[in-house]
Every structure is written in structure tokens, then in C-alpha cells.
């Protein structure tokens, strides 16, 4: 579901499996707790191994974007797989400039 790595001020969250309202809440708490302690400059959210997500997967990005901005850091979203592209474009999240 979630693996966290920290290197060179970058906290990377490797997400996997199914992202919904239930799992996103658990993931969010873990990421925020780590970010609070480590104060990363960049939080990378890696969507490579996300098999399924509903709009909670977008909410997760929006919430982290806000949090990181408050801490003076930024968010990067990487490896969005083809089957999630429609959800991403529908959400308009690209306008935040976080998708790499």
C-alpha cells in the first residue's frame, strides 16, 4: 500500500494497490507524520503501482500540495499509469504543475 523513502531532502511515497477514501486516509496520515519529522523539500508521490483509484487519489495530492506549501516544500507526482490518465485529466490537477 505504501513505502516511504527519504534521500537528499526528498521524501518519496511509493503508492500501490487500491486508492480509495478508506486507504487514502491511512496513507495520508503516514505521509504527513513522516513529513512533519523529516521536513522534506520535495514530496514525491509515485503512482506507478496504483492498480485502482477513485477521486480520493486526487484528494490525496491536493491535501499534500497544501501541506507541503505550508512547510515551504513542493509536491511532485510521478509515473501516472495509462489507466489512471482519464481521472487525472478530468480532475484538472495538471494545472497545479505537480505532474512530472
Amino acid at each position: 500500500m505504501l513505502e516511504l523513502n527519504f534521500e537528499n531532502s526528498v521524501l518519496t511515497a511509493h503508492l500501490s494497490g487500491e486508492l480509495d477514501h478508506h486507504t487514502a486516509a491511512v496513507i495520508r496520515k503516514k505521509i504527513d507524520a513522516k513529513a512533519e519529522i523529516l521536513k522534506p523539500k520535495t514530496l514525491k508521490l509515485d503512482y506507478k503501482n496504483v492498480d485502482f483509484m477513485d477521486s480520493s487519489g486526487i484528494g490525496l495530492i491536493m491535501g499534500r500540495y497544501r501541506n507541503m506549501a505550508l512547510m515551504g516544500g513542493k509536491v511532485e507526482v510521478t509515473n501516472v499509469p495509462p489507466h489512471l490518465k482519464r481521472m487525472f485529466s478530468l480532475s484538472g490537477i495538471e494545472t497545479l504543475g505537480v505532474i512530472k
Binding site: 487514502a24 486516509a25 477521486s55 486526487i58 484528494g59 491536493m62 482519464r86 481521472m87 478530468l90 480532475s91
Partner: peptide, 15 residues
């Protein structure tokens, strides 16, 4: 609240 994207119905209508 802040963690909800407000996209639920938009997603249903699109999918």
C-alpha cells in the same frame, strides 16, 4: 473538507 476533491459526480458522469 480538504481531503475531498469534489469530483464524485463529475467522475460518475464521465465514466
Amino acid at each position: 473538507g480538504e481531503e475531498r476533491a469534489g469530483l464524485g459526480f463529475a467522475v460518475m458522469q464521465s465514466f
